[in-house]
């Protein structure tokens, strides 16, 4: 009996063994790398500054009068200056100065660099910046809802990258190579080499099923080799 189990174990693993290696390598990476670090939370300083409400002279009532279709109105801040950001009907995202009510001009390259440096927790030079306006131009690591954005990269080996909304100046996404590697690890882990989003793929089903059978036959072997009280003559 045992020799047949061993034969099944060998042949099953000959087919899916390499994926076990991938699962364990990617698993080790994903569990050892702190998920908050992967998310880039250490790349940006945490925003603790409070809004000086006294300087907010432009009231919500005025905003309602000036922009009657405004929704998702938020009073936030950019580099210490209070500003309102909201969706203005079909115009989309709008940011206005909360002191004066003036529409803030779209963030330009100089401003984008300034904002990026303001949030960046470490001390590296910016070595790349470009404006991304369309989905076709956009790297897969960003969600299209943030467009248009400035992509700012810092001169460090993990290629820290900040995405800064062109309209609001908000830091909308933080990426570095550890995140990008994590993304690939995830794809290999769920065996979706396409876009890495579909856990319900048939390839994973096939390999996981064969793998489960392989693991069960392995467990039988382990049981008889290690735990069985009568080890002799088990075949």
């Amino acid at each position: 009996m045992l020799s047949r189990v061993r034969k099944y174990h060998k042949w099953l693993m000959a087919f899916v063994g390499i994926q076990f290696l991938f699962w364990s390598i990617t698993g080790v990476y994903m569990v050892t790398m702190d998920i908050h670090y992967i998310h880039g939370e250490t790349l940006a300083k945490s925003e603790e500054a409070k809004i000086d409400l006294a300087s907010v002279d432009y009231s919500i009532a005025k905003l309602a009068a000036d922009y009657s279709e405004a929704s998702q109105v938020t009073l936030t801040q950019s580099m210490g200056d209070p500003l309102y950001s909201f969706i203005n009907g079909e115009q989309g995202k709008v940011a206005i100065d909360a002191k004066t009510g003036a529409v803030r001009p779209p963030v330009d390259e100089v401003k984008a660099k300034e904002i990026a440096q303001y949030h960046y927790a470490m001390n590296h030079e910016i070595n790349g910046i470009r404006l991304i306006q369309s989905v076709t131009d956009m790297p897969a690591e960003l969600s299209p809802r943030h467009l248009p954005v400035w992509r700012v990269t810092f001169d460090q080996f993990a290629t820290p990258t900040f995405y800064i909304s062109q309209q609001t100046g908000a830091l909308v996404a933080k990426r570095h190579d550890y995140w990008r590697l994590f993304d690939w690890m995830w794809r290999f882990h769920i065996m979706d080499y396409d876009d890495g989003e579909n856990v319900s793929n048939w390839f994973l089903f096939l390999v996981a099923t064969l793998g489960l059978m392989g693991a069960i036959t392995g467990a039988v072997l382990t049981y008889y080799r290690v735990l069985s009280p009568n080890k002799k003559g088990v075949i």
Binding site: E48, I51, L53, V56, I60, A61, A64, T74, L75
Partner: peptide, 26 residues
């Protein structure tokens, strides 16, 4: 649950008695 922004008489945020916030959302 949204209402029409023009139907209300909003009190200015600066008139609210509160400690300083990081962010205010309507």
């Amino acid at each position: 649950h949204e209402g029409n922004i023009t139907d209300f008489r909003f009190i200015p945020i600066k008139d609210i008695t509160s400690e300083a916030p990081q962010e205010v959302k309507l």
